[in-house]
Nucleic acid binder design. Structure first.
Lengths: 256, 256
DNA sequence: CAGTGGTCTAGACCACCAA
DNA sequence: TGGTGGTCTAGACCACTGC
């Protein structure tokens, strides 16, 4: 910008933005819009800081601070000398970004989670599922039930609910056959990027239908992990309820 | 610094720092040293950015970036118009910084955790405890066992192990009688600030001695939360093993 | 080598807070 | 009112990457 009025909103390229907030926040918002509009696909590079600075008519430092925040939220990844890239669940250095279950014996290793899809069908949202996914009760949803095995042993029994409209046409074959994390499949096949998630964790006793699937006796303690995943703009896009065996594995968390 | 050699280490005030890293990282290290040396106590303000810039002979922007990182790690808290303050577990806006158990029914509320100390004694480190706390087997440790009750119901049974030398003289009366979080007591009485922690979470079945203390039948599922807390410099200072009831409460976690 | 992100500076001004 | 953190700029140089 030419005139020294850094805090005024109107100086920004896109006049539709009404916010009165720091310039870098507005820039962040604009980049975010391009991100969710799909202007740059997951794994691709976004324009360089200089380009963005020119596009938005602000200094490089301001763009930099905007991207800093996006990087802190794991929406983009910076690579020195190369550029800034849209985050993706594929080719993530940590194979499973949202899975915090690790073997008791040190390193997460490769965890070549074998997937077995038990069920994948269109159904209607229960009241509980509807509330979580911000749908109406009875709206179409896709439900998937599967078992993940580590080192040949069934370890996680998972139920997944997805909004039926967005995930129209998801098949058991896709869920079973794809490479890499399931969230990578969602990116490629449905253009849905899970950006953050909240988990509610409880200890529960295995009940009979599930216990058998995990090769356990009824009553055995299991970790119940209920995960609600969000895309951009805090839109919930997936509800997951996992039952984790924690003999030999544990859920690892870092606090600060 | 006068000459434009920003990346060289020797230009920094304290010549003892050998690192070859960005200037702001070195500054961060120096502030960190003052922090752990107790130059500023928890809750107190650290010098202003301008003062620190003058002390270290760098620009305000460089100090700023150093403090940014410290703030991101929750070691200090910035308050616009007032200053930057050393973090403390007392007067934390979230009463319990490391406790992620919340009631199923929405708001964390006040959670007036009633504490009942069952045991507080000096003993010797088992192999397992010694390994976690980086002591030798048989070294003196203080062990505390207590029950936390929420809304009058015993909910958490906790065993705590602390290095005996640092926590010499910790009494059951202190553990029971202090105001606010236990970590605030540790700051005040022993000058130990817990800065980050790692947790390993498992589902276990309640065994007999513990089940009774939590008013449960043996075999009931419990969340086992093993927490290793660190002070500055990644020195482990506390091992905690909690058994959480998760009927009515859950462990809440955010992923990104 | 050119292009990218990363660091550092110096100076201006803003927003907030307390006396 | 003066001091604090917060924002923004413009320009210089460094470190890494790939051609």
């Amino acid at each position: 910008m030419a005139a020294p009025t850094p805090t005024s909103a109107e100086t920004v390229a896109d006049p539709a933005t009404p916010a009165f907030s720091p310039l870098y926040q507005q820039i962040k918002g604009l980049i975010l819009q391009s991100l969710q509009a799909g202007e740059w696909k997951p794994g691709e590079a976004i324009p360089s800081e200089m380009e963005l600075a020119a596009r938005f008519r602000v200094s490089q430092g301001t763009v930099r601070k905007a991207i800093d925040e996006l990087a802190a939220e794991n929406l983009v990844v910076r690579r020195q000398g190369k550029g800034t890239f849209v985050s993706t669940h594929a080719e993530q250095h940590v194979r499973y970004r949202f899975l915090k279950l690790v073997p008791d014996s040190g390193a997460p290793e490769d965890l070549p989670a074998e997937r077995k899809v038990l069920e994948c069908r269109r159904t209607r949202a229960s009241a509980e599922v509807a509330r979580a996914l911000q749908l109406r009760t009875g709206d179409p949803v896709v439900q998937v039930r599967r078992i993940l095995s580590f080192a040949g042993r069934p370890t996680i029994l998972e139920d997944i609910w997805l909004p039926g409209n967005t995930f129209k046409g998801l098949t058991a074959e896709q869920m079973a056959g794809h490479q890499g994390p399931t969230y990578a499949l969602f990116e490629l096949a449905f253009g849905v990027r899970m950006v953050r998630a909240e988990e509610k964790i409880r200890a529960v006793a295995a009940e009979e239908p599930q216990a058998a699937l995990l090769a356990l006796k009824a009553g055995a303690p299991l970790l119940s992990v209920e995960r609600l995943s969000y895309t951009y703009n805090d839109v919930p896009m997936e509800l997951r309820r996992g039952l984790y065996r924690t003999d030999g594995y544990h859920y690892r968390n870092e606090l600060s």
